[in-house]
Simulated scan of single mutants.
Amino acid sequence: MQIILVSRHLKAARTITIMPRHVLATIFALLVLVFSTSALFSWLSVALRLPVVEDLLVTLHLQEDRKTRDHVDNNLHLMATRLGELQAQVLQLDALGERLSGIAGVKRERSVDIIKAAQGGPYIPAPMSVGALEKEIERLAAVVDRRSDDLAHVETKLLEKRVRERLLPTVLPVKDAYLGSPFGHRSDPIIGTRAMHEGMDFNAETGTPVIAAADGVVLMAAYHPEFGNVIDIDHGEGLTSRYAHLSRIDIKPESLVKRGQLIGAVGSTGRSTGPHLHFEVRMLGVAQNPAHFLKQGDEYAHLKRR
Protein backbone atom coordinates (compact mmCIF):
# COMPACT_ATOMS: atom_id res chain seq x y z
CA MET A 1 0.00 0.00 0.00
CA GLN A 2 1.36 3.49 -0.90
CA ILE A 3 0.29 6.80 0.61
CA ILE A 4 1.11 10.02 -1.32
CA LEU A 5 1.41 13.14 0.80
CA VAL A 6 0.83 16.50 -0.94
CA SER A 7 1.22 19.79 0.97
CA ARG A 8 2.02 23.41 0.21
CA HIS A 9 4.80 23.16 2.77
CA LEU A 10 6.41 20.41 0.73
CA LYS A 11 8.22 21.25 -2.44
CA ALA A 12 7.28 17.91 -3.95
CA ALA A 13 4.81 15.11 -3.23
CA ARG A 14 6.07 12.46 -0.81
CA THR A 15 5.26 8.80 -1.15
CA ILE A 16 5.05 6.46 1.88
CA THR A 17 4.99 2.73 1.29
CA ILE A 18 3.19 0.62 3.97
CA MET A 19 4.06 -3.05 3.96
CA PRO A 20 1.96 -5.84 5.64
CA ARG A 21 4.63 -6.20 8.30
CA HIS A 22 4.13 -2.57 9.23
CA VAL A 23 0.37 -3.19 9.75
CA LEU A 24 0.98 -6.31 11.85
CA ALA A 25 3.57 -4.50 13.94
CA THR A 26 1.14 -1.63 14.59
CA ILE A 27 -1.67 -3.99 15.66
CA PHE A 28 0.66 -5.92 17.92
CA ALA A 29 1.88 -2.69 19.51
CA LEU A 30 -1.71 -1.57 20.16
CA LEU A 31 -2.60 -4.89 21.77
CA VAL A 32 0.48 -4.78 24.00
CA LEU A 33 -0.40 -1.22 25.00
CA VAL A 34 -4.00 -2.16 25.85
CA PHE A 35 -3.05 -5.19 27.94
CA SER A 36 -0.24 -3.31 29.65
CA THR A 37 -2.52 -0.42 30.51
CA SER A 38 -5.19 -2.79 31.82
CA ALA A 39 -2.68 -4.72 33.93
CA LEU A 40 -1.21 -1.52 35.28
CA PHE A 41 -4.63 -0.13 36.13
CA SER A 42 -5.63 -3.39 37.90
CA TRP A 43 -2.38 -3.45 39.87
CA LEU A 44 -2.78 0.18 40.91
CA SER A 45 -6.39 -0.39 41.91
CA VAL A 46 -5.44 -3.32 44.14
CA ALA A 47 -2.26 -1.75 45.50
CA LEU A 48 -3.71 1.69 46.10
CA ARG A 49 -7.33 0.53 46.75
CA LEU A 50 -8.88 3.19 44.56
CA PRO A 51 -12.50 3.91 45.62
CA VAL A 52 -13.82 3.94 42.07
CA VAL A 53 -12.39 0.54 41.34
CA GLU A 54 -13.60 -0.89 44.66
CA ASP A 55 -17.10 0.40 43.98
CA LEU A 56 -17.01 -1.18 40.55
CA LEU A 57 -15.88 -4.53 41.96
CA VAL A 58 -18.52 -4.42 44.71
CA THR A 59 -21.20 -3.65 42.14
CA LEU A 60 -20.11 -6.59 40.02
CA HIS A 61 -20.15 -8.91 43.03
CA LEU A 62 -23.61 -7.70 44.03
CA GLN A 63 -24.91 -8.30 40.51
CA GLU A 64 -23.53 -11.84 40.52
CA ASP A 65 -24.96 -12.49 43.98
CA ARG A 66 -28.35 -11.18 42.88
CA LYS A 67 -28.35 -13.41 39.80
CA THR A 68 -27.40 -16.44 41.90
CA ARG A 69 -30.05 -15.60 44.49
CA ASP A 70 -32.72 -15.12 41.82
CA HIS A 71 -31.76 -18.48 40.28
CA VAL A 72 -31.98 -20.22 43.65
CA ASP A 73 -35.29 -18.52 44.50
CA ASN A 74 -36.72 -19.53 41.15
CA ASN A 75 -35.64 -23.15 41.68
CA LEU A 76 -37.10 -23.11 45.19
CA HIS A 77 -40.38 -21.78 43.84
CA LEU A 78 -40.52 -24.52 41.20
CA MET A 79 -39.67 -27.18 43.77
CA ALA A 80 -42.30 -25.86 46.19
CA THR A 81 -44.88 -25.91 43.40
CA ARG A 82 -43.95 -29.50 42.55
CA LEU A 83 -44.18 -30.41 46.23
CA GLY A 84 -47.68 -28.94 46.45
CA GLU A 85 -48.76 -30.84 43.34
CA LEU A 86 -47.50 -34.13 44.78
CA GLN A 87 -49.25 -33.50 48.09
CA ALA A 88 -52.51 -32.82 46.24
CA GLN A 89 -52.07 -36.01 44.20
CA VAL A 90 -51.55 -38.05 47.35
CA LEU A 91 -54.76 -36.68 48.88
CA GLN A 92 -56.73 -37.30 45.68
CA LEU A 93 -55.39 -40.84 45.33
CA ASP A 94 -56.22 -41.60 48.96
CA ALA A 95 -59.80 -40.34 48.59
CA LEU A 96 -60.27 -42.19 45.29
CA GLY A 97 -58.78 -45.35 46.77
CA GLU A 98 -61.20 -45.27 49.70
CA ARG A 99 -64.19 -44.89 47.37
CA LEU A 100 -63.06 -47.64 45.03
CA SER A 101 -62.28 -49.95 47.93
CA GLY A 102 -65.80 -49.46 49.25
CA ILE A 103 -67.30 -50.24 45.84
CA ALA A 104 -65.09 -53.27 45.28
CA GLY A 105 -65.51 -54.52 48.83
CA VAL A 106 -61.74 -54.61 49.32
CA LYS A 107 -60.27 -53.73 52.71
CA ARG A 108 -57.29 -51.45 52.23
CA GLU A 109 -54.37 -51.67 54.59
CA ARG A 110 -53.37 -48.19 55.68
CA SER A 111 -49.73 -47.49 54.94
CA VAL A 112 -47.26 -46.75 57.70
CA ASP A 113 -46.77 -43.23 56.38
CA ILE A 114 -50.49 -42.54 56.88
CA ILE A 115 -50.72 -43.85 60.45
CA LYS A 116 -49.13 -41.21 62.66
CA ALA A 117 -49.04 -40.69 66.39
CA ALA A 118 -51.12 -37.91 67.92
CA GLN A 119 -49.41 -34.51 67.73
CA GLY A 120 -50.17 -30.88 68.47
CA GLY A 121 -48.80 -27.46 69.33
CA PRO A 122 -48.62 -23.94 67.83
CA TYR A 123 -47.84 -23.50 64.16
CA ILE A 124 -44.41 -22.01 63.59
CA PRO A 125 -43.45 -22.07 59.91
CA ALA A 126 -39.98 -23.41 59.16
CA PRO A 127 -38.68 -22.73 55.63
CA MET A 128 -37.23 -25.80 53.94
CA SER A 129 -33.80 -25.87 52.38
CA VAL A 130 -33.16 -27.06 48.84
CA GLY A 131 -31.93 -30.41 50.10
CA ALA A 132 -34.98 -30.85 52.34
CA LEU A 133 -37.29 -29.98 49.47
CA GLU A 134 -35.59 -32.50 47.20
CA LYS A 135 -35.93 -35.26 49.82
CA GLU A 136 -39.60 -34.44 50.43
CA ILE A 137 -40.32 -34.43 46.69
CA GLU A 138 -38.63 -37.82 46.32
CA ARG A 139 -40.62 -39.19 49.29
CA LEU A 140 -43.95 -37.94 47.94
CA ALA A 141 -43.16 -39.22 44.45
CA ALA A 142 -42.59 -42.67 45.98
CA VAL A 143 -45.89 -42.35 47.89
CA VAL A 144 -47.72 -41.47 44.67
CA ASP A 145 -46.22 -44.56 42.99
CA ARG A 146 -47.38 -46.78 45.88
CA ARG A 147 -50.86 -45.28 45.84
CA SER A 148 -51.05 -45.85 42.08
CA ASP A 149 -50.10 -49.50 42.58
CA ASP A 150 -52.77 -49.80 45.29
CA LEU A 151 -55.40 -48.33 42.98
CA ALA A 152 -54.38 -50.72 40.20
CA HIS A 153 -54.92 -53.61 42.64
CA VAL A 154 -58.32 -52.24 43.68
CA GLU A 155 -59.24 -51.75 40.03
CA THR A 156 -58.41 -55.39 39.33
CA LYS A 157 -60.55 -56.54 42.25
CA LEU A 158 -63.39 -54.31 41.11
CA LEU A 159 -63.20 -55.73 37.61
CA GLU A 160 -63.21 -59.28 39.00
CA LYS A 161 -66.24 -58.42 41.12
CA ARG A 162 -68.11 -57.01 38.14
CA VAL A 163 -67.27 -60.08 36.06
CA ARG A 164 -68.48 -62.38 38.82
CA GLU A 165 -71.68 -60.38 39.17
CA ARG A 166 -72.31 -60.58 35.44
CA LEU A 167 -71.85 -64.36 35.56
CA LEU A 168 -74.07 -64.96 38.59
CA PRO A 169 -77.76 -65.62 37.80
CA THR A 170 -79.21 -62.80 39.90
CA VAL A 171 -81.81 -61.42 37.46
CA LEU A 172 -85.38 -62.78 37.49
CA PRO A 173 -85.80 -64.83 34.29
CA VAL A 174 -89.47 -63.78 33.98
CA LYS A 175 -90.82 -60.32 34.74
CA ASP A 176 -94.26 -59.82 36.30
CA ALA A 177 -94.52 -63.50 37.19
CA TYR A 178 -95.82 -65.20 40.33
CA LEU A 179 -93.66 -67.47 42.44
CA GLY A 180 -94.89 -71.02 42.14
CA SER A 181 -93.27 -74.12 43.62
CA PRO A 182 -90.03 -73.26 45.45
CA PHE A 183 -86.86 -75.36 45.55
CA GLY A 184 -87.05 -78.46 47.74
CA HIS A 185 -89.28 -81.42 48.44
CA ARG A 186 -92.93 -81.28 47.37
CA SER A 187 -95.83 -83.44 46.29
CA ASP A 188 -95.33 -84.32 42.64
CA PRO A 189 -97.97 -82.46 40.57
CA ILE A 190 -98.56 -85.45 38.26
CA ILE A 191 -98.61 -88.53 40.50
CA GLY A 192 -98.90 -86.87 43.93
CA THR A 193 -96.03 -88.66 45.69
CA ARG A 194 -93.20 -86.92 47.57
CA ALA A 195 -90.51 -85.77 45.17
CA MET A 196 -87.57 -83.41 44.96
CA HIS A 197 -88.10 -80.18 43.02
CA GLU A 198 -84.63 -79.10 41.87
CA GLY A 199 -85.62 -75.63 40.78
CA MET A 200 -88.26 -72.96 41.29
CA ASP A 201 -91.32 -72.21 39.17
CA PHE A 202 -92.46 -68.84 37.84
CA ASN A 203 -96.14 -68.79 36.88
CA ALA A 204 -96.95 -66.58 33.88
CA GLU A 205 -99.07 -66.67 30.76
CA THR A 206 -97.91 -68.56 27.69
CA GLY A 207 -95.73 -66.36 25.51
CA THR A 208 -94.38 -64.26 28.39
CA PRO A 209 -90.73 -63.40 27.55
CA VAL A 210 -87.98 -65.36 29.28
CA ILE A 211 -84.56 -63.74 29.65
CA ALA A 212 -81.10 -64.97 30.62
CA ALA A 213 -80.38 -64.52 34.32
CA ALA A 214 -76.66 -63.92 33.63
CA ASP A 215 -74.03 -63.84 30.90
CA GLY A 216 -72.99 -67.17 29.48
CA VAL A 217 -72.80 -69.66 26.61
CA VAL A 218 -75.76 -71.77 25.50
CA LEU A 219 -75.02 -75.44 26.16
CA MET A 220 -78.35 -76.82 24.99
CA ALA A 221 -81.43 -75.43 23.30
CA ALA A 222 -83.66 -78.36 22.36
CA TYR A 223 -86.67 -80.46 23.29
CA HIS A 224 -86.49 -82.79 26.31
CA PRO A 225 -89.19 -85.41 27.16
CA GLU A 226 -89.61 -84.11 30.74
CA PHE A 227 -88.48 -80.47 30.51
CA GLY A 228 -90.06 -79.84 27.09
CA ASN A 229 -88.33 -77.01 25.26
CA VAL A 230 -85.33 -76.38 27.48
CA ILE A 231 -82.29 -74.11 27.43
CA ASP A 232 -79.14 -74.71 29.47
CA ILE A 233 -76.62 -71.85 29.84
CA ASP A 234 -73.04 -72.24 31.09
CA HIS A 235 -71.85 -69.29 33.23
CA GLY A 236 -68.35 -70.60 33.81
CA GLU A 237 -66.55 -72.41 36.63
CA GLY A 238 -69.17 -75.17 36.72
CA LEU A 239 -72.15 -72.83 37.20
CA THR A 240 -75.15 -73.41 34.87
CA SER A 241 -78.78 -72.33 34.68
CA ARG A 242 -81.78 -74.09 33.11
CA TYR A 243 -85.00 -72.69 31.60
CA ALA A 244 -87.63 -75.39 30.98
CA HIS A 245 -91.19 -75.92 29.61
CA LEU A 246 -90.72 -73.07 27.09
CA SER A 247 -93.29 -72.46 24.37
CA ARG A 248 -90.49 -71.38 22.03
CA ILE A 249 -86.69 -71.13 21.89
CA ASP A 250 -85.11 -67.94 20.51
CA ILE A 251 -81.41 -68.84 20.71
CA LYS A 252 -79.12 -71.52 19.32
CA PRO A 253 -76.58 -73.79 21.02
CA GLU A 254 -73.05 -72.40 21.49
CA SER A 255 -74.27 -68.81 21.14
CA LEU A 256 -73.24 -66.11 23.60
CA VAL A 257 -75.96 -64.53 25.71
CA LYS A 258 -75.98 -61.43 27.87
CA ARG A 259 -77.74 -60.84 31.16
CA GLY A 260 -81.32 -59.81 30.39
CA GLN A 261 -81.24 -61.04 26.78
CA LEU A 262 -84.43 -62.62 25.41
CA ILE A 263 -83.95 -66.38 25.03
CA GLY A 264 -87.50 -67.79 24.77
CA ALA A 265 -91.06 -67.63 26.09
CA VAL A 266 -93.08 -69.23 28.89
CA GLY A 267 -94.98 -72.36 27.91
CA SER A 268 -96.21 -75.74 29.13
CA THR A 269 -94.19 -78.21 27.08
CA GLY A 270 -92.89 -81.50 28.46
CA ARG A 271 -94.03 -82.84 31.83
CA SER A 272 -96.10 -79.85 32.94
CA THR A 273 -99.61 -79.09 34.23
CA GLY A 274 -99.80 -75.50 32.95
CA PRO A 275 -97.85 -72.52 31.63
CA HIS A 276 -94.87 -71.67 33.81
CA LEU A 277 -91.06 -71.44 33.73
CA HIS A 278 -89.06 -74.05 35.60
CA PHE A 279 -85.75 -72.37 36.53
CA GLU A 280 -82.73 -74.25 37.85
CA VAL A 281 -79.21 -73.31 38.97
CA ARG A 282 -76.56 -76.03 39.18
CA MET A 283 -72.96 -76.06 40.41
CA LEU A 284 -70.88 -78.86 38.92
CA GLY A 285 -74.12 -80.64 38.10
CA VAL A 286 -75.55 -80.41 41.63
CA ALA A 287 -78.83 -78.53 41.94
CA GLN A 288 -78.69 -75.36 44.04
CA ASN A 289 -81.53 -73.26 45.40
CA PRO A 290 -82.00 -70.53 42.74
CA ALA A 291 -83.34 -68.17 45.42
CA HIS A 292 -79.85 -67.93 46.97
CA PHE A 293 -78.62 -66.34 43.75
CA LEU A 294 -81.71 -64.32 42.87
CA LYS A 295 -81.77 -62.70 46.32
CA GLN A 296 -78.44 -61.05 45.48
CA GLY A 297 -80.27 -59.01 42.84
CA ASP A 298 -82.68 -56.13 43.33
CA GLU A 299 -85.72 -57.78 41.73
CA TYR A 300 -86.32 -60.79 43.94
CA ALA A 301 -87.74 -58.72 46.79
CA HIS A 302 -90.51 -57.51 44.43
CA LEU A 303 -91.38 -60.97 43.14
CA LYS A 304 -95.14 -61.56 43.33
CA ARG A 305 -96.42 -64.38 45.52
CA ARG A 306 -99.87 -65.90 45.47
Score class of each variant (00 low, 15 high):
residue 219 L to A: 14
residue 73 D to V: 04
residue 28 F to T: 15
residue 241 S to M: 09
residue 117 A to N: 09
residue 138 E to P: 06
residue 218 V to F: 01
residue 269 T to K: 00
residue 195 A to F: 05
residue 63 Q to G: 10
residue 76 L to D: 03
residue 155 E to Y: 14
residue 201 D to Q: 00
residue 42 S to P: 11
residue 53 V to Q: 09
residue 236 G to S: 00
residue 61 H to N: 14
residue 306 R to P: 15
residue 47 A to L: 06
residue 116 K to N: 05
residue 4 I to F: 07
residue 177 A to V: 08
residue 202 F to H: 07
residue 242 R to S: 15
residue 56 L to H: 12
residue 263 I to M: 04
residue 266 V to L: 10
residue 166 R to Q: 13
residue 16 I to L: 06
residue 58 V to N: 08
residue 233 I to F: 03
residue 175 K to R: 13
residue 69 R to C: 10
residue 52 V to A: 15
residue 186 R to E: 04
residue 169 P to M: 03
residue 212 A to Y: 00
residue 8 R to F: 08
residue 50 L to V: 05
residue 149 D to C: 08
residue 38 S to D: 09
residue 11 K to V: 11
residue 78 L to C: 10
residue 226 E to Y: 09
residue 116 K to W: 02
residue 127 P to M: 02
residue 262 L to G: 02
residue 278 H to Q: 07
residue 248 R to A: 14
residue 182 P to N: 02
residue 247 S to Y: 08
residue 248 R to M: 12
residue 23 V to N: 06
residue 223 Y to K: 08
residue 181 S to H: 06
residue 10 L to H: 05
residue 114 I to Y: 13
residue 277 L to S: 08
residue 183 F to C: 01
residue 232 D to S: 14
residue 272 S to K: 01
residue 210 V to E: 07
residue 147 R to Y: 15
residue 221 A to F: 02
residue 88 A to D: 07
residue 13 A to M: 05
residue 74 N to M: 13
residue 76 L to N: 07
residue 294 L to D: 05
residue 265 A to F: 08
residue 257 V to M: 01
residue 228 G to I: 00
residue 102 G to N: 12
residue 38 S to W: 14
residue 61 H to F: 15
residue 101 S to E: 11
residue 157 K to H: 10
residue 156 T to R: 11
residue 57 L to M: 13
residue 257 V to I: 02
residue 193 T to W: 13
residue 74 N to S: 15
residue 134 E to T: 07
residue 83 L to R: 01
residue 22 H to R: 05
residue 129 S to E: 02
residue 1 M to Y: 11
residue 129 S to F: 05
residue 244 A to D: 03
residue 271 R to P: 01
residue 305 R to Q: 08
residue 150 D to V: 07
residue 87 Q to R: 11
residue 118 A to M: 12
residue 153 H to C: 10
residue 127 P to F: 04
residue 251 I to N: 01
residue 255 S to Q: 02
residue 11 K to Q: 12
residue 289 N to L: 04
residue 105 G to M: 02
residue 172 L to K: 00
residue 154 V to R: 02
residue 90 V to L: 06
residue 6 V to Q: 11
residue 105 G to E: 03
residue 216 G to R: 00
residue 62 L to W: 15
residue 226 E to M: 07
residue 150 D to Q: 10
residue 56 L to A: 13
residue 258 K to M: 11
residue 251 I to E: 02
residue 263 I to R: 00
residue 291 A to Q: 10
residue 47 A to E: 06
residue 245 H to Y: 03
residue 42 S to H: 13
residue 263 I to K: 00
residue 204 A to V: 08
residue 301 A to L: 13
residue 140 L to P: 01
residue 83 L to W: 03
residue 90 V to W: 04
residue 24 L to H: 13
residue 281 V to G: 07
residue 63 Q to E: 15
residue 176 D to T: 14
residue 87 Q to W: 09
residue 58 V to Y: 14
residue 42 S to I: 12
residue 229 N to P: 04
residue 130 V to M: 11
residue 282 R to H: 13
residue 157 K to S: 15
residue 286 V to R: 08
residue 120 G to Y: 04
residue 42 S to Y: 15
residue 142 A to G: 10
residue 49 R to N: 10
residue 89 Q to W: 04
residue 79 M to R: 06
residue 178 Y to N: 10
residue 183 F to N: 00
residue 220 M to L: 14
residue 171 V to P: 04
residue 185 H to P: 05
residue 232 D to H: 14
residue 4 I to R: 04
residue 102 G to W: 12
